[in-house]
Design a binder for these strands. Structure first.
Length: 748
RNA sequence: GGGCGAUUAGCUCAGCUGGCUAGAGCAAUUCGUUUACACCGAAUAGGUCGUAGGUUCAAGUCCUACAUCGCCCACCA
């Protein structure tokens, strides 16, 4: 009976199967609830996961596919065990990263961001993102992601931005949000401030210059300092030595002359200074080094800014250096110092530098005014939930890392000098510069500011927090900075459900899980937990499941520049989505690295094909005249094969519930291939070979096989949804099954 | 400098709270089959579970040190 093709043609069938699922509406939990109700199925608690929104600035890679494969397996399992299940999809505007990517794209097209202007840039960048979002959506569907696309979000959607703004306003009122002038990392390429967490460290080549600072009032007496960044000396305001250092004891409290600038600066004593490093004397540039900034604060040193946002020399320095890049200036300075006999030597060294996480440019530490959030007591709140077990991280080793992060939480710099993102909803009466100046100079008035800068101000220096301009008086200057992208994605679990007042929020919050690769644990999950706790008084999810990292076959990171990447499309075409999914379940386990292994994916494809052919054989063995009897036959639960099948279902269910997908994948393979196909089918083949069509024994045995087949299709469906649904539909076509596999329930 | 993790067959990894005569997939070797599937079947070989101690009736499995590798965090000029 039946005439099925010899292999499961994933290329042909997967898209068809996916669109049938979509039509069924089962990915919408509201519709699913109705459907279950009409069938009289017991409805369990809803199950929700807000899916990680991929950055809408490119295509998805195998790492995204990995995460979605796990989401989907869990989602499908929950759906098949009576839970109205919501996998909520979205796309992320991804602030800096998208701005960088899009600017680069414009450049390739011969266009310039600055010529284009802010508004036009935003518009075109938006379109760029929408195109990418649409591609990403198609790819998500290719891997079989059973998400409810009727609820899809983009992080810049109005409904979502509204929630983000509310949170900011609340935090401002609470005094958690504040503006502060501190030393921050400034990326000269991205031209924006970066939070510490947005930076990386890398060993790079550099110089170590030894420079003589003449002691004031003495001939031929010098203090030698050593520095990796000579250009910052223009902003030096002290030389620090260790109080116990015999070499310099006599100079403490005296002055040295800062060369080039010809300015006297004090020699101060500070325990932080290591006598062994360099010369033991440290030049102090509070404006351009985090360490020096702290020392400067302690000793009330002047802060002299000599490098701007773009990494160019600026401020009160000799004309000839102005506008030079810091590197150019470094060279020019060394030359001049050498001519003056003040340069002792330059060593070539390798040292750790801080670089921009996105564009890998070395950051310039610099002083600037930025918006900050004090996260400390929210961090303590989350810490409690980790300790109590309310929130769990899989693998547990990463949980400790997360605890460590919360214990050492720093103020979060949330303002970015970008064009792409959500504008910080703040208005300054009389301008931002006035506001910052008044904050810095306590007791001073608007009048003082007018005097100091010789301008006329309309406005009183106050601030208004809110999306809309407070009135039309013309005194208000809108904030131009954007939010750090993580400030919006950090609110993903409730903003996508319409915020704390939303209808979906009432039904589907809190969510149950968060699944992503471990590299964004601190950026994302850590923030979602804190912000969730703040806005909703409860943690947004209880389980963080960290997938393994997908690597190139040699164990290195996949990257475009190395050309060692593998495109998902390539894998789909060669082996199909189910085969790729199985590989993730067995290889991309929490805490592990998963170098791509094509031969393993091929092996999984073979298994997928085995599922097809085992099923095909069972179907083909049934004669048309037997179908009605077989479909009505109720198998005896005492029969060994039936009993073992039940045990198998329970075992795999347990594995899924414990997130042991590797064991689940192994078990279904073992059962279907090596028990059903290799043993049971072979046994029954022999038994019924000589039997007449329609005989009691044939009907009984074929019914038994059909039972085992259907049950194992159900339990395999969360792992390999396409081929199992494909087979199920063949059964439906013959009257041996009903509906769609996606809505079937797994019997416990 | 601090934290975390890894080290089991040629390769990639399982092995949860100690009972293993140590498993899987892929690769390898031999044989078979071409009317479910060559994207197949049957079989074989391959590991003193990083090293050294310890706890225990019993240790890949727990403890301690060491070695090697990886990741994360950190302001060393």
């Amino acid at each position: 009976m039946g005439n099925l093709p010899k292999s499961f043609d994933s290329q042909q069938l997967e898209p068809k199967i996916y669109s049938r699922w979509e039509k069924s509406g089962m990915f919408n939990p509201d519709k699913m609830r109705e459907s279950l109700k009409s069938k009289g199925v017991d409805i369990e608690k809803p199950f929700t996961i807000t899916l990680p929104p991929p950055n809408a600035n490119g295509n998805l890679h195998l790492g995204h596919m990995c995460g979605y494969s796990f989401h989907d397996a869990i989602g499908r399992y929950m759906r098949m065990t009576g839970h109205p299940t919501l996998l909520l999809p979205g796309k992320d505007h991804a602030g800096i990263q998208t701005e960088t990517a899009f600017t680069k794209k414009l450049k390739e097209e011969g266009k310039d961001k600055w010529e284009m202007g802010r508004e036009e840039f935003y518009k075109q960048c938006y379109d760029f993102c929408m195109t990418n979002a649409s591609n990403a959506r198609d790819q998500e569907k290719k891997i079989g992601l059973s998400a409810d696309y009727s609820r899809e979000f983009f992080t810049l959607d109005e409904r979502l931005t509204k929630t983000v703004y509310e949170t900011f306003e609340m935090m401002f009122k609470d005094g958690r949000v504040y503006r502060d002038k501190r030393i921050v990392n400034i990326c000269p390429t991205c031209k924006t401030a970066l939070a510490d967490i947005d930076t990386e460290h890398e060993e790079r080549r550099g110089i170590f210059a030894y420079i003589k600072y003449p002691v004031a009032g003495k001939e031929d007496e010098y203090i030698k300092v050593a520095t990796t960044r000579p250009e910052t000396m223009l902003g030096d305001t002290a030389v620090a030595v260790n109080p116990d250092d015999p070499k310099y004891k006599e100079y403490i409290g005296k002055n040295v002359i800062l060369p080039i600038q010809n300015k006297e600066i004090p020699v101060i004593a500070d325990e932080e200074v290591d006598m062994e490093t360099g010369t033991g004397a440290l030049k102090v540039t509070p404006a351009h080094s985090p360490v020096d900034f702290e020392i400067g604060k302690k000793h009330k040193l002047e802060v002299v800014n000599v490098i701007d946002m773009e990494g160019c020399m600026t401020g009160e320095i000799p004309e000839r250096f102005k506008g030079m890049s810091s590197n150019e200036c470094s060279r020019a300075l060394c030359k001049e110092l050498d001519e003056q006999g003040l340069l002792v030597k330059i060593e070539n060294i390798r040292h750790e530098v801080t670089i921009c996480e996105r564009c890998k440019t070395a950051v310039e530490p610099g002083i600037s005014n930025q918006w900050y959030i004090d996260m400390s007591n929210l961090a303590r709140g989350v810490l409690k939930t980790l300790e109590s077990g309310e929130v769990k991280v899989i693998p547990s080793g990463q949980q400790k890392a997360l605890e460590h992060f919360y214990e050492n939480i720093q103020p979060w710099c949330i303002s970015r000098q970008l064009w792409w993102g959500q504008r910080i909803p703040v208005w300054y009466s009389g301008g931002k510069k006035l506001y910052d100046w008044l904050q810095e100079n306590e007791g001073k008035t608007v009048k003082d500011f007018e005097g100091e800068f010789n301008t006329k101000i309309s406005g009183d220096g106050s601030i208004h927090v809110g999306e809309d301009i407070p009135d039309s008086s013309g005194v208000w200057e809108g904030e131009t900075d954007m939010f750090d992208t993580w400030f919006s994605s950090g609110q993903w679990p409730y903003s996508t459900l319409g915020g704390p007042e939303g209808e979906d929020f009432a039904k589907y919050y809190p969510t149950q899980m968060m699944i992503h690769a471990r590299d964004i644990l601190f950026w994302w999950s850590a923030r979602m937990l804190m912000l969730g706790l703040y806005r909703t008084k409860e943690v947004p999810f209880n389980t963080i499941f960290l997938t393994g990292m997908i690597l190139a076959s040699d164990g290195s990171k996949m990257s475009k520049s190395k050309g060692n990447g593998v495109e998902p499309q390539e894998v789909f075409e060669k082996y199909g989505a189910d085969a790729l999914r199985l590989w993730y379940y067995s290889d991309a386990l929490p805490g592990s690295n998963a170098p791509i292994r094509e031969e393993k994916i091929r092996g999984n494809r073979n298994f997928v094909n085995k599922i097809w052919n085992g099923s095909r054989f069972i179907i083909m063995n049934m004669e048309e005249s037997e179908i009605e009897r077989v479909s009505e036959y109720v198998v005896n639960t005492d029969v060994e094969r039936v009993r073992l099948t039940r045990e198998h279902i329970q075992k795999v269910s347990k594995y899924i519930e414990k997130y042991q997908f590797n064991l689940g994948a192994e078990a279904i393979r073992e059962f279907f291939w090596h028990r059903l196909c290799d043993v049971w089918i072979e046994e029954i083949k022999d038994e019924i070979q000589e039997e007449e069509v329609g005989s009691e024994l044939r009907v009984e045995r074929l019914s038994e096989l059909l039972f085992v087949l259907k049950e194992s299709l159900r339990i395999m469906h969360p792992f390999v949804p396409f081929v199992t649904e494909g087979v199920w539909q063949e059964l439906v076509g013959l009257g041996l099954a009903e509906g769609m596999l996606v809505e079937q329930q797994i019997e416990g």
